[in-house]
Amino acid sequence: MSWFAKYSRSSIGAKHVMAVSGLLLLLFAVVHMLGHLQMFGGQDMYNKYANFLQSLWEVKWPTRAGLLAMVLVHIATAMSLVAKNRAARPVGYAVYRPVRSTAAGRSMILTGLVILAFIVFHIVHFTLGQVQPGVFHTLDAQGRYDAYSMYVYGFQNVGLYAAYLVGILLLSVHLGHGAASWLQSLGFRHPKYPYDKLGRLTAVVLFVGYMIPPTAVLVGLIKLPGA
């Protein structure tokens, strides 16, 4: 076995794989959130940004491939860790009282799987346009794909708003543990820095940052052009 295969299959190697793939996904989640905040800049700003990203195929496809690889690696490693951890305690306790662990930490695999479903739904909705086909790939006044209007149509729908609320909430809960956990996994933790707070802070920032533009659409602060 090559040293890398041996390393990535070991308990700590697998932790490192979880941490690095999780961290890269987290960085993407932050950048993606910042992108959406441009909805407040209006149709022109948002469409310019969306079309800019779409036009850079040299960046777009490697990024997509990288994200897909990270998600696959993260999930496959998570599954194998969960299986090994279950096997490590074949007989449970009649009475077991956890005191230090958090509900978010103990439900990583559950929140993770819901996030996976959410990511698939999100791609079907906005990348493939199959949820609201009528408003997909319409053009704006400058002849660009009108991502801004697609976004507004999406969140004027209460059902879709609720689906995103649940998805983003669970992503935040997952990262409430994950965004602090990677520091320990990679050994960067140092008692001088309050890294447990980093998890909660990241969770709150992502939740608020992601939900502000859809909420603004739902309550009518962000409108269709001309509406």
Binding site: S10, S11, I12, A14, K15, L81, K84, N85, A87, A88, R89, P98, V99, R100, S101, T102, G105, R106, M108, H177, A180, S181, Q184, S185
Partner: peptide, 14 residues
């Protein structure tokens, strides 16, 4: 440790 069949750390700190 791995060969003995112990589980992995999930950073729960129990």
């Amino acid at each position: 440790m791995d060969a003995a069949g112990f589980g992995n750390c999930s950073n729960h700190y129990e």
